[in-house]
Amino acid sequence: MNTMTEGHAMFAPPVAEHASPSAPPAGMFDIMPGYEGTVAGGGTVDFFHLPCLLNQSPSLHLDLNNHTGNTARDAFSLYVSSKCCYSSAPAKDGVIVNMESFNTYRYRLETFTESRSTEWSHEPYNGQPVDAYVQQPPGPWDLPAKAPTFFVDGEQKMKVPYTSSMKPCHDCFGNGRKPCKDCAGSGNKMCWVCNGSGFRHGGDRCHHCSGRGRENCAHCYGHGSKECTTCRGKQQLLVFICLTVKWTNNCDNYVVEQSSGLQVSNLSQVSGKELFRDSQYLVYPVMGFPDPTVVQAAQRLVGDHQSKFSRTSRILQQRQTIELIPITKVTYTWKGKTYVYFVYGNEFKVSTNDYPATCCCSVM
């Protein structure tokens, strides 16, 4: 697992500053020093901007391996067998007459970021410590969070120390219970068997309500009120500022255009042969790669990521890779006609738009 070095701590964002502090909603929440802009529903902390860095080009070794005839045929047969409406005859009896390679490159840039936001929150009071105003609360970026696993999304929530206070529940006004909506607080409802008359057909007394014409409300058990779901009957709430830390892997891909006829969207489902991998705090754009469009894409994406994400979060790590994705266009004949299918990726995925032996069926 990758970890941040000590040298990166100098980039910790400062505490957010707000030109005009906003008051907490409905007067329920206090204004905490350093958290004047925090509201119920969330508020984002202001962040820093990191400088872009220049790079040195890596050396690359290219190994162009194509799909073989046997590989292509086996992949095609497996693909056909997975389709309930496809006859296996073309895959078995078709004759491969041509195989063309359209290998392409995929450049991928991942920027792993950490963002922090705060919002007022609450929970039923069960004797938790109340520490508001005991001392200045720490800033959002001063609180330690769990060590992240790089390039894996995650989230952590925590109470900000010295922001917790006790308040009467705003939902039940400190009563701990709320009127039952099902019976309008009466605790009973009209008997559905006798429609409130107390008698059934023939003048017999209704056994369901014992002749009362009404029955206890099943939702509040005849009490006319229900436990408040906000304070869970405790009458009091612990109100505090909640810090949410999010780790996000932001990923962008660039695939070099190829003329095989295979849709580029298909390539998102497969992997290729990894030619280059570079992972560090801030990566340098790739230079000197044989395909100039990859170099251009790397320069553009690295600049975009470092500019975009340094304004909204803290960059923890970046990773860039270049893959060679094998694409083979297979032309075959069956019953005197010519057809085409594609085999692509390390997974030997198959795509075809003109399979010659299909039937119509429906799944019930």
Results as ranks from 00 to 15, higher is better:
V15S: 09
G41Y: 10
R177C: 08
P51K: 14
M158G: 05
I325Q: 00
R116T: 06
L143C: 06
C183T: 03
P137V: 07
N55P: 08
L50W: 09
H18Q: 09
D74F: 04
P179M: 04
C359K: 15
V302D: 00
M287F: 07
Q269C: 10
I322M: 01
Y284H: 12
L237Y: 08
K146I: 12
S82C: 12
E36S: 13
E227Q: 13
D278S: 10
F289I: 08
G224T: 05
G336Y: 01
K189F: 01
V294S: 09
G336R: 06
S225V: 07
C228M: 06
G41H: 09
S121D: 14
C217R: 00
L316R: 01
S260C: 09
P144H: 10
N216I: 00
P285V: 10
F48T: 14
S77Y: 13
K246D: 07
S197H: 02
M99Y: 00
Q136L: 11
G27F: 15
I327L: 06
Y107S: 03
E257Y: 14
S265D: 10
T328Y: 02
C191Q: 03
F309K: 01
R73N: 08
S210M: 03
K246T: 12
P168T: 09
T163K: 07
T331N: 14
S88C: 00
I315N: 02
K181E: 12
I315L: 05
Y35C: 00
E119M: 13
P24A: 09
M32Y: 08
N55Y: 07
T118C: 14
K329C: 02
E36P: 03
N250I: 11
A19F: 10
K234H: 14
P292I: 03
G42E: 07
G154Y: 05
H18P: 01
H18F: 14
L237E: 04
G7M: 10
Y79P: 00
V255I: 11
K308I: 02
Q236N: 13
P161I: 11
A72S: 15
G43A: 15
F151Y: 14
C183V: 02
G69I: 04
P13W: 06
P292A: 08
P51C: 06
R300L: 12
K273R: 15
S121Q: 12
N188H: 11
Q306F: 04
Y355L: 07
K178M: 13
S87T: 04
S82W: 08
T229V: 11
N195I: 07
V343G: 02
L64V: 09
N70D: 10
L78P: 00
T358E: 07
N70Q: 14
G288I: 03
G34Y: 06
P179Y: 04
H8T: 13
F150W: 14
L301G: 00
W141I: 06
Y284D: 10
N346Q: 12
E323H: 09
D291E: 14
N55H: 14
M4G: 09
